[in-house]
Amino acid sequence: MGKVIMIDENQIEVLNEQYKSAAPAKIIKKALELSTEAVVTTNFRPYEAAILHAVSKVESQIPVVWCDTGYNTPQTYKHAEQVISDLGLNVFLYVPKQTSAHRDVVMGIPSIDSPKHALFTEQVKLEPFKRAMDEHKPQVWFTNLRQGQTAFRNSIGIFSLSKDGILKVSPFYYWSDEKLDTYLSNNNLPNEFKYFDPTKALENRECGLHA
């Protein structure tokens, strides 16, 4: 068991100031100095190969938590298989307890304003994620959140604390799409834009895991 992080908002502020211009690898190394009890989460949406590459280059056996809603596009599944294979990722797959085929019959995909939308989001995204975190019990959580994606994400910085007190680390927080395109190209990494999140009708809507 790695050491437990005792960190408060003041220390988070200091870290964010110190590492604002740091390279992703330096940010990742610092986070792993604080605790080796770490995971990286992914849904294989666009640009996810960058965070998976950066983290696995520093710690090759880090658990990669993939919460698959069951509604991904064929392109996303092919992309995921390629990235997992190319990077030799240590993947732990979490899926909803009910299949999408079963849910399609009893609920379908509710619209954002449907009373069933909260239950749908709980089933396909929040419950598998909570199960993953309960099993791995990370002190550090690497993610590919970036500034400019949502109002909430504009407010957090590279280092932040999750609502459960986990140190959330977003090494590419200040990176633009253009800069990430260059990173992917320089490291011969694939990207895939045909991605579907059944819980979000709007691209700039927060997904529920982070808020």
Rank of each mutant, 00 (worst) to 15 (best):
residue 180 L to I: 08
residue 69 T to A: 02
residue 174 Y to Q: 09
residue 204 N to Q: 11
residue 64 V to N: 09
residue 26 K to E: 12
residue 112 I to A: 07
residue 23 A to T: 11
residue 57 K to L: 04
residue 211 A to D: 14
residue 96 P to I: 09
residue 105 V to Q: 10
residue 15 L to T: 07
residue 64 V to P: 03
residue 96 P to F: 01
residue 46 P to F: 00
residue 153 R to E: 11
residue 9 E to T: 15
residue 108 G to V: 09
residue 150 T to L: 05
residue 100 S to F: 02
residue 29 K to A: 12
residue 211 A to L: 10
residue 151 A to Q: 11
residue 188 N to Q: 09
residue 159 F to R: 07
residue 52 L to D: 02
residue 42 T to S: 07
residue 125 K to D: 05
residue 148 G to L: 06
residue 207 C to F: 01
residue 197 D to L: 08
residue 210 H to R: 05
residue 75 Q to L: 03
residue 87 L to T: 02
residue 199 T to N: 11
residue 73 T to L: 10
residue 21 S to Q: 12
residue 91 V to Y: 04
residue 157 G to E: 04
residue 79 H to V: 07
residue 29 K to H: 06
residue 178 E to L: 04
residue 200 K to N: 07
residue 109 I to R: 08
residue 170 S to P: 05
residue 208 G to Q: 11
residue 75 Q to V: 08
residue 99 T to C: 09
residue 81 E to H: 10
residue 147 Q to S: 07
residue 16 N to I: 12
residue 171 P to S: 06
residue 52 L to N: 01
residue 52 L to Y: 00
residue 130 K to G: 09
residue 196 F to N: 13
residue 170 S to Y: 00
residue 205 R to P: 03
residue 92 F to K: 15
residue 145 L to T: 14
residue 194 K to A: 09
residue 29 K to D: 10
residue 101 A to V: 05
residue 97 K to Q: 04
residue 22 A to H: 12
residue 54 A to E: 05
residue 181 D to K: 02
residue 20 K to D: 07
residue 170 S to L: 02
residue 141 W to M: 15
residue 210 H to G: 15
residue 99 T to V: 13
residue 160 S to G: 13
residue 143 T to L: 08
residue 183 Y to L: 02
residue 166 I to D: 12
